[in-house]
Design a protein around this nucleic acid. Sequence first.
RNA 1: AGCGAGGUAGGGUAGUCUGGAGUGCCCGCCGGGCUCAUAACCCGGAGAUCGGUGGUUCAAAUCCACUCCUCGCUACCA
Length: 497
Amino acid sequence: MRAGGDGRFYITTAIPYVNAAPHIGHALEFVQTDVIARANRLMGREVLLLTGADENSLKNVKAAEEQKITTQQLCDRNAAYFMELAQKMNLSFGVFMRSSLREAHWPGVQRLWQLCDGAGDIYRKKYSGLYCVGCEQFYTEGELVGGLCPEHKTKPEPVEEENYFFRLSKYQDALQKLIEEDRLRVWPQSRKNEVLGFIRGGLEDFSISRSVARARGWGVPVPGDSSQIMYVWLDALSIYMTGVGYGTSDKEFGKWWPTDVHVIGKGIIRFHAVYWPAILLSAGIDLPKSVFVHGYLTVEGEKMSKSIGNVVSPLALLGKYTADELRYYLIRDIPTFEDGDFSEAALKDRVNKELLGDLGNLVNRVLTIVEKSGFTDFSGKNELGGMLDADAVVGALGAMELHNALGMIMEFVRACNRYVNDKAPWKLDGEELRGVLYNLLEAMRIVSVLMYPFIPETSEKIAGKLGTRITGFAECRFRESFTERTAKGEHLFKKIE
RNA sequence: AGCGAGGUAGGGUAGUCUGGAGUGCCCGCCGGGCUCAUAACCCGGAGAUCGGUGGUUCAAAUCCACUCCUCGCUACCA
């Protein structure tokens, strides 16, 4: 994760396909993205986080028909769910971009198309496939169950249609080199291998348009051909650019592009690590610097699915848990790049044992002793500083090891609790007590800064109790003395029964 | 089938690249301490032939070969 020389950092979530309400997987992605964004702010960078909604798809048209509302109404409603989730989880986004915004989004997509076309990479070709009339979509052999449409159990018919294709094959060597050399970095290594394996297997051109009839007229029109509409990928990926002004404000676009990190789920890696950079190469636009691929969540050990009825709604969870509690759990319990399992029992456990029992308790017990001490300024020998390697925490954040970074901070919190027990400050007085409290106050101040990317509201609360401010990672070393006025106030967390 | 990832105490993980006593962490279990703290905190203990087999080495969870099991990817699918 290297920001440009100008100290700016542009990061995106994947653009969720808004044909349904958000599930817990979306929440995971939001949190991971936000932790990276906030960490970069504390590193002193100017950060822009983009999220949004991908709305131009046939499925939305059909869902709207079923619900007897317009497609735009359906998109508006579903996009609002994602906006709500982003806000409630404290995703610090600057842009929420939607692909149905004609004025903001369409000009950029069409310009991109024209650039690829100008490079000679777009051509017409007959596309044939197995088409299910009921689903109104094409299936590959592998997707069929016993040769039948998995949904309608009918035999799809071979259909032929002329579409536009993108010359992906032309970029095979260039892409392979870019990824091998980490000029387009793919996190983690295992995903990079997977992408390279795919590229080495040979790249075929892919279809980038549909007939207007088949798309039901919903989507971005192909420039100069009123019979075709762009297929979702070119359109959806462009959101990353149009969201920062591509096609509408060259100045804004120049300020933020290229993307530093695209955060995505493992299911859409090919589009981001192969199709997208190829399109940009064709158009002569700078490539994103990296793609961050997280895993998927199971729920209580089972795959999330509508038919099982175990889809976990983060919006519902947020009625019961605070944003920080959910954020903490998702980073702490789910390995950053692996699949993980969501379990409410585990969530509760993390909140009660760690946020409340370790962190909340530390703050509370120390501030109680501080108040009883009657001291207002604290100094002494630095005994706790050696227990924390703040640079290692920041380094882990820079290396995208969110899980490890948080683990290191919690280890320090435990060390602080141990220190309290060992020193038994309730038995001390005078300079000895002053020195112990100095160590603990400085430790908590630093914890409030390091924790900020993960649990920003709680960090602000801790800083508020300490009378300090969270400015940046540069603040994460012990000062000579602690002189701010503390105020114990209420508990940071409530026990969840 | 091909390519990729992984199999470490009851559960979950770190360690593996750059071999060095099974070393660590979380949950759970057992015992003890403390009383500042939201029955929170701290210490100690039990519990693992590090998937299996065979090699390399003075020494292997770590390197090599083979093998068993799990998962992911294998294209127009969010």
